[in-house]
């Protein structure tokens, strides 16, 4: 029984951190494991993540501030990245005047307060210098326009929110599985043992 409840806890941990609200709810009533966080906060966290992923930075900032105003006040790097993303969205939408105005008013200040951001700032600003039409050759900074950049910022923000709620930044389950695979590989070189071949079913070789 003990083992089962441990695994259930791991699963709950995974579901909460990854933000599967409905699954958490179902799993909680089936397994009787309390989720340890309120479901509303998961929901809110997911709304924020989606907002960033869809490029609605202002909305994300507003929601984070409603959730916990300290997150962005104490995490200047994250705040910079959100502002940077906002600039990128302006550029993506072709609003060059807005982008310039915004950069002058906000981003230059950030660079001044935190010189370590200057390099990233410069890269972002150089987006303005390149032709961004799809047929143009890729510029050295065009990766900033990729969807992955949004995912990166969304992930950073998600982690900061989790941290502010005293939760781990990453779920335990994937880390455990990685460790399992790694140790099996290590072990394989030295001894023969009943190896788990199918991680999903726990089937042994």
């Amino acid at each position: 029984m003990k083992q089962y409840s441990d695994i259930n806890k791991l699963i709950m941990n995974y579901l909460v951190i990854e933000g599967y609200k409905d699954a958490v709810e179902k799993f909680a009533s089936e397994s009787g494991i309390p989720p340890n966080v309120d479901l509303e906060s998961i929901d809110e966290r997911m709304k924020i993540r989606t907002a960033v992923q869809e490029g609605r930075i202002d909305e994300a900032i507003g929601r984070v501030n409603d959730l916990d105003p300290e997150i962005l006040d104490t995490n200047s790097r994250l705040y910079f990245h959100l502002q940077q993303q906002k600039l990128i969205e302006f550029i993506r939408a072709g609003k060059i005047t807005d982008a310039l105005d915004f950069a002058q008013e906000e981003l230059a200040m950030r660079g001044e307060e935190n010189p370590e951001f200057l390099e990233e700032l410069e890269q972002t600003m150089s987006l303005l210098a390149f032709d961004l039409s799809p047929q143009a050759p890729a510029s050295p900074v065009s990766s900033l326009l990729d969807y992955s950049q949004r995912l990166k910022v969304a992930g950073e923000l998600n982690a900061a929110i989790l941290q502010s709620q005293c939760q781990e930044r990453n779920p335990k389950l994937p880390a455990l599985l990685k460790m399992l695979v790694w140790s099996q590989n290590q072990l394989e070189e030295k001894v023969s043992f009943p190896k788990i071949t199918n991680l999903a079913t726990g089937e042994l070789a």
């Binding site: 202002d58 900032i61 507003g62 501030n65 105003p69 962005l72 006040d73 995490n75 200047s76 705040y79 906000e106 200040m109 307060e113």
Partner: peptide, 12 residues
């Protein structure tokens, strides 16, 4: 709210 979202994280 607008003011709040402007000032949070923004020293200037």
């Amino acid at each position: 709210r607008e003011v709040k979202n402007a000032v949070i994280g923004n020293r200037g």
